[in-house]
């Protein structure tokens, strides 16, 4: 029992990371009908920004070692950096080709993804690097053998807080209302006097910031970052968005958690039914195929659902 609970905690934990990244996919899709394949790399850029920032504040502000202050600065700093990068990508890569077919934008997205990855490999090397630990990690015993660590609690708390914040932005603010309007119909929104370009840029910034938060949080939990870390994680988050119903915000969160749990259960119990634990990555893609076959609109997605 304690082993099962533990696996559930482990699964929800990586699921929360997938959910944060999936939100970015789903928001951009909701507005532009574009699958932003560079989004996984934004997650990586966020982790690297946090890495640089952690060393910078350790050297210049004397905030070396683990402290909540340092963690907060790194987290927020990485989110801002990634938001700027996301906005730049939208402005210089996607906006110029937006008037062409959707396929053109999709291919541009793949190009941007490869560009970012290879720029980082060229600049930093493909080797993983240790992310500075900004948290005095310790483990809390729950019951039996089941335990939860501070870094896992951090992932849960921060991701839930960010999701609530996102919910508030979308439903309680003017810009959120505008986002929802654009997702319904871009051209009519324009006629209503909404600055659609600004709203699209803002959506990219928001999604990128969430991905960067996921990057920094993961790095506290499994302290290695490398330029290609966004590929698999990004793809799984994309599957999570499709599973939940792409364009649907609660769907992205649900999809992320489900993928995380499914993956961990394969590692934990797959051997009992003849699935080796190394098939964990295949599971996400098997789910993708099943969803596309059985329920292409995803678990929560439907044509009348309000999209962002």
């Amino acid at each position: 029992m304690d082993t099962f609970v533990q696996q559930l905690i482990n699964g929800l934990n990586i699921g929360a990371i997938y959910a944060l990244i999936a939100l970015g996919y789903t928001m951009v899709y909701g507005i532009l009908r574009l699958i932003n394949f560079a989004h996984g790399d934004i997650y990586m850029v966020g982790a690297f920004a946090g890495y640089g920032l952690a060393y910078f504040i350790a050297a210049n502000l004397g905030l070396a070692g683990a402290s909540w202050g340092a963690l907060l600065i790194v987290l927020v700093g990485a989110m801002i950096t990634a938001a700027l990068v996301g906005m730049a990508i939208e402005r210089f890569a996607y906006r110029p080709v937006r008037k062409y077919s959707r396929m053109t934008t999709l291919i541009t997205a793949i190009g941007v993804s490869l560009l970012i990855e290879n720029l980082f490999v060229a600049r930093y090397g493909g080797m993983g690097r240790g992310f500075p630990q900004l948290l005095n990690d310790r483990t809390y015993q729950l019951f039996g053998n089941a335990a939860i660590s501070k870094s896992q609690i951090l992932i849960f708390v921060v991701s839930i807080a960010l999701m609530l914040l996102l919910q508030w932005i979308i439903y309680k603010t003017r810009v959120g209302t505008a986002m929802r309007a654009v997702s319904f119909n871009l051209n009519s929104s324009k006629l209503m006097g909404i600055n659609t370009d600004a709203i699209i840029t803002f959506t990219f910034a928001l999604g990128s910031a969430l991905a960067a938060a996921a990057g920094v949080l993961t790095a506290q939990y499994s302290p290695t970052i490398d330029p290609l870390m966004g590929i698999t994680t990004g793809l799984k988050a994309f599957v999570a968005a499709v599973l939940g119903g792409i364009g649907n915000i609660p769907g992205a969160v649900l999809g992320g958690l489900l993928i995380g749990v499914a993956e961990t259960m394969v590692v934990g119990y797959g051997a009992n039914v003849g699935i080796a634990s190394t098939y964990r990555d295949a599971v996400a893609f098997a789910i993708l195929i099943l969803v596309l076959l059985l329920r292409p609109s995803g678990l929560l997605g439907s044509t009348v659902q309000e999209k962002v």
Partner: peptide, 10 residues
């Protein structure tokens, strides 16, 4: 792989 908690829990 970056997450080994599944294996380690078992």
């Amino acid at each position: 792989d970056r997450d080994f908690t599944g294996q380690l829990t078992q």
